[in-house]
Design a binder for these strands. Structure first.
Lengths: 232, 232
DNA sequence: GATATTTTATGCTGAAAAACATAACAAGCC
DNA sequence: GGCTTGTTATGTTTTTCAGCATAAAATATC
């Protein structure tokens, strides 16, 4: 865990939450923030930890999961660059209820709790931006609850593949998903056992819906994949 | 749907969100709000509706559910007096993704979208209060996702019973849950079929964990119920 | 580059829960 | 009261999926 990496992108990118800050607030954040580098597989925060502030993912990919029955993990969120982490617990005034792990090397920009509250109090647009983020996540979580409980294995897996595509996008070939997950992570995202993730992925491949090369997933029949997902 | 009922409680109760408003803001809300009465089984808002503002439940009980595969409904939230509804979609800038139905006669206090935004911009404590509500709901939803997907039927039903107890409380006898749901609603809350809800409830009764009289559920062995819930 | 470890692949078995069927019972309505 | 409609109850069948076992392949470690 090294300090003071470059996270200029987080201040400049229009999708980033800091774009809502006033110039003098940006300066304040530049001075006060810290920037932390995490290696692949590093834990960023874990269940029961006390929230320290707002974390902005500058670079990399992160999974956020919760451990359930028999320590089995269920991924509740996937974070992409400029995504926010760790502040839900802060506002709910409780400790973290999930664990965040870097899926590849990541740079995270951290704003301390008190500084964050100061920014919110000074700038209602910034506050509304954070509310928007919470509201979007809540919508996602509610949709997910229903999909994971009601859809059958094939539907759940198809939905997860589409979700990964929507979140991380596609390579230049316009079909390869820009994230490489282990079969176990795919299973933990889709609420199934690893065996079933492997089995169902190869069924999809044999049906010509996707093609697999190692951890690389290529969507070869989007229409069919969407049909499988929506039919459940 | 009649207008102008009494919803003074929403302004006076310390648990209500309006307690965070400044005196002149309270006056503003008193003037501008509308108060609507819903009969049992009335739809308050439904999936795909455009959000109109912030809804505060002054009196009654409400279920919020989402329709999934084959129109099967999954209850994502239960609202009790002073609970908030309908503003998640507003902040996420999308239409409602769930339907709210009154489980018994209800009084709802409505603040228009623009008025709400004005209050938020003027008062950061109020904004933070709303953030807290979103953050708490998101935590609940994430916990729920994992519980509903990983626990077995008995665990899910036990958890739902405990959840209903925590949300609506107990009668004076300190064991009867203060809400009466149909078996179908209990099933939709616990992610199971109505048959299984009925079957498992009577198993619990025969095991002495609960006792049932019609729709009235009495918890007779709290420890055991908690054990069933946590073991999954 | 040889060995250990993890990940992926696939078959088989049994448990869990959904689906279906039927009936008793209660409630609202003419 | 008698009728319809909705809810609750319980038994039977079928489907889905988890659990387990084993092996091959890929990756990491020394």
């Amino acid at each position: 865990m090294q300090k003071n990496f470059d996270c200029d992108k987080c201040f400049d990118a229009p999708e980033a939450i800091f774009s809502l800050l006033k110039p003098e607030q940006k300066e304040f954040v530049r001075e006060r923030h810290s920037c932390v580098f995490y290696k692949k597989n590093d834990v960023i925060f874990k269940e029961e930890d006390e929230p320290i502030g707002l974390l902005v993912l500058c670079d990399g990919k992160v999974k956020v999961f919760r451990e359930g029955v028999g320590r089995r993990e269920q991924i509740v969120r996937m974070v992409k660059p400029y995504g926010l982490m760790g502040f839900r617990a802060l506002f709910a005034e409780e400790n973290h209820i999930a664990t965040a792990v870097a899926l590849e090397d990541a740079i995270v920009c951290i704003i301390d709790k008190d500084d964050l509250m100061k920014l919110i109090r000074e700038n209602s647009d910034f506050a509304i931006g954070l509310m928007r983020s919470l509201a979007t996540d809540l919508g996602f979580s509610n949709r997910r609850t229903v999909a994971l409980t009601q859809k059958h294995i094939r539907g759940r897996l198809a939905e997860s593949i589409l979700f990964l595509k929507d979140t991380y996008g596609l390579e230049d070939d316009e079909s390869t998903i820009k994230i490489f997950l282990s079969r176990e992570d795919i299973a933990n995202l889709s609420n199934m056992t690893t065996s079933n993730a492997i089995r169902t992925l190869s069924t999809f491949a044999s049906e010509g819906v996707i093609s697999i090369t190692g951890r690389k997933i290529k969507i070869t029949d989007m229409k069919k994949l969407e049909r499988i997902s929506s039919l459940g």
